[in-house]
Every structure is written in structure tokens, then in C-alpha cells.
Nucleic acid binder design. Structure first.
Lengths: 202, 202
DNA sequence: ACCTGAACACCGTTCAAGT
DNA sequence: ACCTGAACACCGTTCAAGT
């Protein structure tokens, strides 16, 4: 996130930031395919091609949006596991909840984030941003290994099981078929299940 | 799937089927947003608006494609659990594998299927097609309950845990981070984990 | 450095018309 | 019943030009 000097040249102090802001709003109520650059420009009272000074094309704007989203997810996940005094189970459940909550709260952005990073020819920068954002997962698993709560093995590989559980919850959550169970409770249940498999054999 | 008489009126015996076929091919290598009706029409050597006799608009064509995909998934899932002599664990693992394999093999179609049915204002027909396609999940759980392999409770609710596991696998599989483990094996591992939670308490 | 405006090659959809 | 072709209102992107 490079800060630009607010020289207020034509219409805005920072057209780039303004574009990202309205783009995210448009995203959240229409998806990435219905998002129109011309419409965004109209909203901001700027010419259709003003955005060209800040983004090479539409894809570049979407990538920037995805990158920003990944950074925000990373912050949320880091905060969730920040208390290193807590035991592994508590931390990993908080991690899972933060992940699921982010996906629920910013559904369209979340979809874009993983659509962008998985598309063929995604910029390396985006892949790296994703690794950084998700790093709290493996990190917590590694801490769990250090305290004897988790079996030995590659933390990234073991964390994959947690990611799988979380992504599964997110996927089925759009069905809204929770039979009245709050999502936080379901997250705890499923992740608790997963934790059992990560336990060292007695 | 209503069969039309092959009267070969202008260009095709069945333009509807031909459209669905090329549309799926286009989908599989470009996503639903880059799919162009005009381009499909050109490929079939037909006017841009010929499709209008078979589909009200682009969305209707995508919905039809999603519906067809759901039917095919349903067939695959039914086949996976068809041997009622097998025990619960075997059947539900086969179910999960069939699900994951379908999603891998028809990635773009799979995405479209769940994008279509989850979008606001999705036709009821699509929702029903989805329930029918996924029915083998709850059905297998119900069989498991009958044989004492699964705890009591709403089969649809219990099956949700299996769906969650499977969807999670699919989500992370696009990352291709399996550390050399075959997906079938990982599916078995994770679903086996899930099964433990479905067991009646001794 | 930042923004404009006309032009180009695409879209999906509507409508009147053809057979 | 099925298909065509012109027209309309949109796109994203390129390019030459403005300050």
C-alpha cells in the first residue's frame, strides 16, 4: 500500500483510492463481471479513461482490489491468533471463525480474491499476498507442534486440513442450510473434529 | 432433457443441443463471463439471434447448462453409492470421491452450477435440480443410520458435514498444494475423519 | 504527471421482417 | 415454428490530444 501525495490535481486527492472504494462497493452488489469501469468513472465524475493513469486495465483494478482484500484478511487472521498464551484449540478455532466471518462479511470480495489468485497468469505478487495473508494458519499449527498439541510434520500441509474445513463451511454457508445453528457454533464443531486428527497418537 | 424431433429445419437437427454443447466447451476454457453468444452463433454458422428460439437470454442458457451439469452430477453420485451391500464408510467415501472428481473434471461447469443456483432470483427449477442431484448424500446417511453406523438426527443436517468436507477439498484443490498426495487419498483421509464424528457414542 | 474525447471492435437485447 | 438483419445502448481499450 504505497501512499500517494494528496496533490489534488484535477478531481480527487487520490483517484486511485477513490476508484478502489467505489469498485468494492459495486463488487459487493453485482459481482466482478457486472462491474463497469465506465460506470465507476461516471460515479466519480471523471472521464472514462482517467483510471488508466492508475490501472493498466480492468483486470489490474480487480487484482489491486483482490490484493487489498488479502491484506485485510491477513490482518484479521493475525489478530485472531495474536494471543500466544492461549492453547492451540482455542487459537485455531478463533482463526477459523475469523476466516469464515471475513468470507461472509465480504462475500463478493472474498470470491474475487480467490478467483484472481487462481486464474491462469495471475501476477506473482498476488500469490505472495495470499501466502502472507494465510500464514497465520501454518504459524499456529507450528506453535501447536512446539507445545505438543499437534503431531509432527510440515505445518503448511497440516494447516491445509484446517483450510479445507473452513472453505467447506464457507461453500455450504451460501446455501443457508444451517438448520438454525449459528455459523460460529458450526465452525467450532467442525474444526474441533479436525483437531482430533491433528492430535499426536497417545 | 426433453428430446426434440430432428426435423433439421434450417441449419441443425437440434440447435438447442448444439448451443449447449459449444457453450460448455467455451465455458471450460474461459469462464462464464467471457462466454459470448455472438461467438457461439458464429461457430455454429447461425445468426446471432437464432438462439432466442431456445433460450430467453444469456442467463437462461447458462441456467440450462447448470441444470444439465447438476443432472450429470446426480447420476455420478447415485452410481457411487449404488451398491447398498457396502458398509456406510465405503459408500460415503465413494460418494465424496465421485463429488470431488466431478468438480475437478468439469471445473468451470461446476463453478457455474453453484454460482447459478446461489444467485439471487435463481429459478426454483434449478434449486430443485440441485436437491435431486445431492440427494444421494442424505440418502446414504439415512442408510447408515438404519444400520447403526451413524448417529440419529436429520440426515440432511448430518450430510452437511460431508458436503462441507468435500467442498473444502475442492476449494483448496485449485491451489494444487497437495504435497504430492493424490486427491483420492486426501479425500479418504478427511472424510474418514468426518465419519468419526458421525459415529454413535459407545 | 494526470486527465479528456473521439474512435474501434466488441457485447446482449429488442424489434420488425422473412420463410 | 424457426431464423435473419438492422438498430440500440452498452462495454473495454487504443490513440492523439490537451493542461
Amino acid at each position: 500500500m504505497v501512499k500517494k501525495k494528496a496533490t489534488r490535481p484535477y478531481h480527487h486527492g487520490d483517484l486511485r483510492a477513490a476508484l478502489l472504494e467505489v469498485a468494492e462497493k459495486a463488487l459487493e452488489k453485482g459481482g466482478s463481471e457486472t462491474l463497469s469501469l465506465r460506470e465507476l468513472s461516471r460515479e466519480l465524475g471523471v472521464s472514462s479513461m482517467a483510471f488508466r493513469n492508475h490501472f493498466a486495465n480492468k483486470q489490474a483494478l480487480l487484482d489491486a482490489l483482490a490484493r487489498e482484500g488479502l491484506n485485510r484478511l491477513g490482518v484479521a487472521l493475525n489478530r485472531a491468533i495474536s494471543d500466544r498464551e492461549q492453547d492451540f484449540d482455542t487459537r485455531i478455532i478463533k482463526f477459523a471463525r475469523a476466516y469464515v466471518r471475513f468470507a461472509m462479511k465480504h462475500a463478493a470480495l472474498f470470491r474475487l480474491m480467490f478467483l484472481s489468485k487462481h486464474r491462469t497468469g495471475a501476477p506473482a505478487e498476488l500469490i505472495e499476498a495470499s501466502y502472507r495473508a494465510l500464514a497465520p494458519g501454518p504459524a499456529t499449527v507450528a506453535d501447536g507442534q512446539a507445545s505438543g498439541a499437534v503431531v509432527q510434520g510440515d505445518p503448511a500441509r497440516l494447516a491445509l486440513v484446517v483450510f479445507s474445513a473452513v472453505e467447506g463451511l464457507i461453500a455450504i454457508s451460501t446455501d443457508g442450510q444451517f438448520f438454525g445453528q449459528p455459523l460460529d457454533r458450526l465452525t467450532e464443531e467442525i474444526v474441533s473434529q479436525i483437531i482430533l486428527g491433528l492430535r499426536p497418537r497417545l
